[in-house]
Amino acid sequence: MSASLQASSVTKRFGGVLALSEVSLELRAGEVHGLIGPNGSGKTTLLNLLSGYYRPDHGRILLGSEDLSQRAVQARAQLGVARTFQKPRLLPTLSVLENAMIGGWTDTRSGFLASALAFATARREERMLRARAAELLQGVGLGHVIDRRANLLEHAEQRFLEIARGLTGRPSFILLDEPAGGLTSAEIEHLGTVIRVMRECGIGVLLVEHHTDFVFRICDRVTTLDLGRMIKHGSPAEVRTDAEVIRVYLGA
């Protein structure tokens, strides 16, 4: 298991707009790392750089000592970096269980032909993934909707399903893009429970979030962005009392 997933002074431009300017962030194994900042500060851009949807103009994305900067999104899944999306991206016609199973794609060693012929290895992989996904779904609290078509899920259920899908890929790091968005306070508590379990299991959790109370409560470290620059990073206590963070984001 790699010790850290790192953005090393990355810069990203879109046309003339500087979305991120020399931002560094280190997500360690077994920590919950908060990423906060006003809208348009570059949080999602940084997440997309870490997960490979964008490539940095300058700087590097490192997993341990391995340079991922120019590698495809798929390589992240292979190497144990999972993510969820701000707007949940589920496969609407498949069941909850199958949606979670797809997260384990990288454990599918059987090729197309082996699957078409239903070789024993393909069926064994299928059984194993089915069992793993079912256990994870029970664990995050979706055991009661396991057979439901994903397009019938409520919003909170979709968010938890995305996390379960990420976990089915056996990640070392998981990047959560505003997982508390649209959740009730009780559901946010449950989200906190799930995140703490992931931390205990040694997974590094990056939490991009607007619910600052939640972030300061649960995170070990917090990084704050504004206008594409990193303005403060440190423990929750340090960040929430920082004058600059209060001025641009938290408000007095």
């Binding site: 999104v73 798929q74 993510r83 794609w105 990288t106 890929g169």
Partner: peptide, 8 residues
């Protein structure tokens, strides 16, 4: 996007 994220 999902297909890529899970490694398909």
């Amino acid at each position: 996007v999902t297909a890529q994220a899970v490694g398909v």
